[in-house]
Amino acid sequence: MSEPLAVFDDLRTESEQLDLLVRDLEAEAWSTPTPAPRWTVAHQIAHLAWTDRAALLAMGDPDAFAGEVEKALAAPDSFVDDGAEAGAALEPAVLLAQWRDGRAELQKVLRSAAETRTKFPWYGPPMSAASMATGRLMETWAHGQDVADALGVVREPSDRLRHIARIGIRARDFAFAVQGLPAPDGGEFRVELLAPGGQLWTYGPEDAAQRVTGPALDFCLLVTQRAHRDDLAVRAEGADADRWLDIAQAFAGPPGQGRSPKGTRP
């Protein structure tokens, strides 16, 4: 299967795995706090449903989506939270149905656009259908991690992490830029990640002066800011690579709050 088609299937599977965590929850469990400040389980699912609708709008009506981007620029600190808050106020069954319907429709639209080279607008750089699916998979996995942590569930990592690792690596210079820092000199870093299945995923030149190594799961937790660097087995060689591990993000928008080290949490 080609990579573009594989990411669509992997996005669907990632969503289904998260669905399994929430589909049988009692109504009160949707109010369980997650590691994201002020966000409950309902907020996490509401955010995914909201972002799926935004993706559908971007792919179907770019002019209307431009209006949403203007709203985001006008309220960068509250735009995402406001969208999650509106969805979280719904009855859990209604919210769950909206998320399911939206992600199913997005699957159809993404697959129909797969044969074109069209770039669709987004909150960051324009995206192809495959790139849009990769971004949605990354968000689904990351917000699913918040839900799993809230519910005390340990998820089994899968090779779907390769999509998240790749987007995190490609976003290196963006992570520096949103911090107001210049991109590192000297080209790509070497990144070597131990995959869940035991194989080694490698990126960048083998002879690169700076490198990052560690488990793929830990790297993905790092670039999605779902765990603090101090709690992860990701290591850097080189000053710029070391700095990157402090600021890495795989998502568009301003720097996130990240997570505190486990030893400092209340």
Rank of each mutant, 00 (worst) to 15 (best):
A66P: 10
E28T: 09
L245D: 13
F174V: 01
S15A: 03
L20M: 09
D173S: 07
A252S: 14
M127N: 15
W141P: 14
P254Y: 12
A183F: 01
I45N: 09
D10K: 01
D52E: 02
S158T: 08
M59K: 07
G83R: 08
V191E: 00
P126G: 09
G144C: 12
P182S: 01
G168H: 15
G87P: 06
F189E: 07
A64G: 15
Q98K: 15
D19R: 06
H47F: 01
P266T: 11
R229F: 04
L151I: 03
L217Q: 04
I169P: 05
T134H: 02
L90R: 14
A72V: 02
G87S: 13
P76M: 14
D185Y: 01
A113M: 10
R162Y: 03
T118V: 08
E14T: 06
L48N: 09
A142D: 07
P205I: 02
A171M: 12
Q17L: 03
A74H: 06
Q44E: 03
E206S: 04
A227R: 15
W99A: 15
M138L: 14
S15C: 07
R235C: 09
D82P: 08
K71T: 09
A175M: 12
H163S: 02
P182C: 09
D9H: 15
G258N: 14
R162F: 00
H43P: 00
P121W: 04
R117G: 15
F219P: 01
D242F: 01
L57I: 03
M132G: 05
L161V: 05
E139P: 06
G180L: 05
P4L: 09
L56M: 13
V147Y: 05
V41Y: 07
P184Y: 12
Q145K: 13
L5M: 11
L48Y: 15
S128P: 12
G214D: 09
R103T: 13
G60W: 15
H143M: 02
T140Y: 04
A171K: 12
A183W: 03
E156S: 04
Q44W: 02
A252I: 00
A88T: 12
Q249E: 05
I247R: 14
M1L: 03
E105N: 05
R38N: 11
E70G: 08
D101F: 01
I164N: 05
A183C: 02
W50G: 07
M132I: 10
D230F: 14
I167E: 02
P182W: 00
P157S: 06
F65R: 15
V80R: 03
A64P: 08
V178A: 04
P125E: 02
P157C: 01
G214I: 13
T116A: 15
F120V: 11
E156D: 08
E28W: 04
R100F: 09
L181E: 10
A241Y: 00
T34L: 03
A58Q: 11
